[in-house]
Nucleic acid binder design. Structure first.
Lengths: 128, 128
DNA sequence: TTGACATATTCCCATATGGGAATGTAATGT
DNA sequence: ACATTACATTCCCATATGGGAATATGTCAA
């Protein structure tokens, strides 16, 4: 198999940059498809397809208005994503304090010891 | 073309359920690959591949420990996602109040009018 | 009904994945 | 040096997309 279908959940749906742009565009006001096409400079079929995905996962709502269809972001459907990412908040706060502490320690150390040689490593995101 | 490469950004990386599971598992403690394999009941090569993707977008950090490699979630890299989703917070709050108001209005109305027939629609996530 | 709008779908195609199996590689023990 | 442990990569393959072009569908105006 390959990746789970895009239409299966909001995480997949927002993985697409254009879909995120559409969600942002429709966040505060209803807009017909054409407005999205113009505003984001995308092809109309492309927008329709993205809207289809977004609707399937409940990220946007639609209502007919004459010959047009007005779409609007259903912000509530984004909430679970916000909550999932929020689970990590305390960790990045920890990391920030640690970084700060390291910086301070280094600062203090730098007063006595000259800075290390150029090739010194730091972060750890290395290979092999 | 197809979708942008998974390795291009955190949004794509977290679109995978297993990768989210790995991030959660590595959030509070460093763990060797084998621990992930056991804990999440995945194939080792599969875990390595997911870790590769996560590392490429900076969502996890790695450090060698003898013959093992210890991975840990880099929570800071998740922060942008939290912030993006947070942009919609005020909107879903609006919606919640609206839903509440609708519910109350309906309640009040229900006192005078009997409930509608069984096939009645509500949300608006319809077709055509 | 015919024609113009506004959208949605379908076709075809190149590419991105992810899984499974097999294999490569680094580090440690003897 | 050799076997073992712990991971990473590569190959092959089925499937999921997304874009572009063409076409279908739905709605309103004459």
């Amino acid at each position: 198999m390959a990746r789970a279908a895009t239409t299966s959940d909001a995480f997949n749906a927002v993985a697409e940059p254009r879909r995120r742009a559409i969600l942002a565009f429709l966040a505060d006001r209803e807009q017909p498809v054409t407005a999205i096409v113009v505003a984001l400079a995308l092809e109309q079929p492309s927008v329709s397809k993205h809207l289809r995905v977004l609707r399937d996962v409940g990220l946007v709502r639609m209502r007919r208005d004459g010959r047009r269809k007005l779409y609007r972001t259903n912000a509530a459907a984004i909430r679970p994503l916000h909550e999932w990412t929020g689970e990590f908040e305390r960790f990045w706060q920890h990391q920030l304090t640690k970084v700060k502490q390291r910086a301070e320690a280094k600062m203090a150390q730098g007063i006595e010891t000259p800075p290390p040689a150029a090739g010194s490593r730091e972060g750890g995101s290395d290979d092999e």
